[in-house]
Amino acid sequence: MDKQKAALLSVFSNTALILFKLVAGVIMGSVSVISEAIHSGIDLLASIIAYFSIKQARKPADSDHPFGHGKFENVSGAFEAILIFLVAVMIIYEAIKKIITKGKIENIEAGLAVMLISAVVNLFISSKLFKVAKKTDSIALEADAMHLYTDVFTSFGVFLGLVVIKFTHIYILDPLIAIAVALMIIKASIDLTKKALCDLVDKSLPQEEIKVIEDIIKKYSQVTSYHKLRTRKSGDRREIDVHIRMENSTPLIDAHNLCNMIEEEIRKALPNSYITIHIEPEDEK
């Protein structure tokens, strides 16, 4: 499954879950179940954004975007994180209102069924999305997967809360559970924002990946030294720029072939890498 199809699968699953949760929440008068419906609604919007950002990011480089469109995925991830934060604030507001009005809930069995089904479905879909995101190195799809994975815990948390309410009739647990759900959502939004912004501000590749690049360059005895190694990430694309020094007497064709070998080995170790190597004579200062 490619990442665009995976994003589309997320759109369909979220649409179905929203309908189930919303109907059950309204029938029950449960703010925790309705908060989960709202959460899934934001996830649906995030899935749609992820789908179109992935589609945009796949476009080849052009005159206006000479380095490609990969950062559309990073923008999508940051925007999704903001949406998640806003829905958490909205859930907390509704929960506080429910505490003040001291509302009761009915038909708890419907909520139990919907929450359990939701947790199982989201666990299955998020696992698939994480697998595709890791394979394709897609930040937008990873953000979408993280949303759904958060839903697994929040849905199961609401499920357990409803079980307790059913047997104890302590109805204030309903809005308290909703607030707990919201706090988990806020934590997820902060983590996603940090991850998305790292690439938007051109942070270097992780140290373990930089070490891979350095080890490959050092393997070649023809390279006397290297410097000005610069790296960054754009969507699933790694951009690598490095200056290497070689013996003054090295023929141009040999230098060219060596650069090709280094680039090919880096691409094998770090797929989807775009590499620029600048050659300098050994005695250049």
Results as ranks from 00 to 15, higher is better:
residue 137 D to E: 11
residue 174 D to L: 00
residue 155 S to D: 03
residue 130 F to W: 08
residue 142 E to W: 05
residue 72 F to N: 13
residue 142 E to P: 13
residue 73 E to S: 04
residue 121 V to W: 15
residue 173 L to R: 03
residue 89 V to P: 09
residue 65 H to C: 11
residue 167 F to K: 04
residue 88 A to N: 13
residue 170 I to G: 02
residue 129 L to Q: 11
residue 156 F to Y: 08
residue 163 V to I: 11
residue 69 H to L: 10
residue 129 L to K: 06
residue 169 H to Y: 15
residue 160 L to E: 00
residue 123 L to P: 02
residue 160 L to S: 00
residue 145 A to E: 14
residue 158 V to L: 02
residue 164 V to K: 08
residue 165 I to K: 05
residue 88 A to Y: 06
residue 83 L to F: 09
residue 100 I to D: 07
residue 99 I to N: 00
residue 101 T to I: 11
residue 84 I to W: 14
residue 162 L to C: 01
residue 96 I to G: 05
residue 104 K to V: 09
residue 140 A to Y: 12
residue 169 H to I: 06
residue 92 I to A: 13
residue 118 S to V: 15
residue 137 D to I: 01
residue 171 Y to I: 02
residue 144 D to S: 07
residue 170 I to W: 10
residue 77 G to R: 09
residue 156 F to C: 08
residue 138 S to R: 02
residue 173 L to N: 01
residue 152 V to I: 11
residue 99 I to F: 01
residue 129 L to M: 13
residue 161 G to T: 07
residue 105 I to V: 03
residue 122 N to P: 00
residue 94 E to Y: 04
residue 69 H to C: 08
residue 87 V to W: 14
residue 153 F to T: 10
residue 161 G to I: 05
residue 71 K to H: 14
residue 136 T to C: 04
residue 102 K to F: 00
residue 160 L to F: 00
residue 134 K to G: 12
residue 126 S to K: 15
residue 105 I to R: 01
residue 77 G to C: 13
residue 112 L to I: 04
residue 165 I to Y: 03
residue 174 D to Y: 00
residue 109 E to A: 05
residue 78 A to K: 15
residue 171 Y to D: 03
residue 150 T to D: 09
residue 133 A to M: 14
residue 164 V to T: 05
residue 130 F to K: 15
residue 76 S to C: 07
residue 142 E to Q: 11
residue 120 V to M: 04
residue 157 G to K: 13
residue 68 G to W: 12
residue 115 M to P: 00
residue 108 I to N: 01
residue 108 I to K: 01
residue 91 I to C: 03
residue 133 A to Y: 12
residue 69 H to I: 15
residue 155 S to R: 02
residue 141 L to Q: 12
residue 87 V to N: 11
residue 157 G to E: 04
residue 105 I to A: 04
residue 157 G to L: 13
residue 111 G to M: 06
residue 162 L to V: 01
residue 104 K to M: 07
residue 159 F to H: 05
residue 106 E to I: 11
residue 69 H to Q: 15
residue 123 L to R: 01
residue 102 K to V: 00
residue 94 E to P: 05
residue 97 K to Y: 00
residue 113 A to G: 01
residue 164 V to I: 11
residue 148 L to A: 13
residue 121 V to P: 10
residue 168 T to H: 06
residue 174 D to A: 00
residue 92 I to L: 15
residue 149 Y to V: 15
residue 96 I to F: 15
residue 113 A to W: 04
residue 147 H to I: 05
residue 83 L to P: 06
residue 105 I to S: 02
residue 102 K to D: 00
residue 68 G to F: 08
residue 86 L to H: 14
residue 104 K to F: 15
residue 85 F to Q: 10
residue 88 A to M: 12
residue 122 N to M: 02
residue 156 F to E: 13
residue 80 E to C: 12
residue 82 I to A: 07
residue 150 T to L: 13
residue 145 A to L: 10
residue 170 I to N: 02
residue 108 I to T: 05
residue 116 L to F: 08
residue 138 S to P: 11
residue 133 A to S: 09
residue 101 T to W: 02
residue 81 A to S: 11
residue 127 S to K: 06
residue 68 G to R: 11
residue 151 D to E: 06
residue 128 K to R: 09
residue 87 V to Q: 14
residue 95 A to N: 07
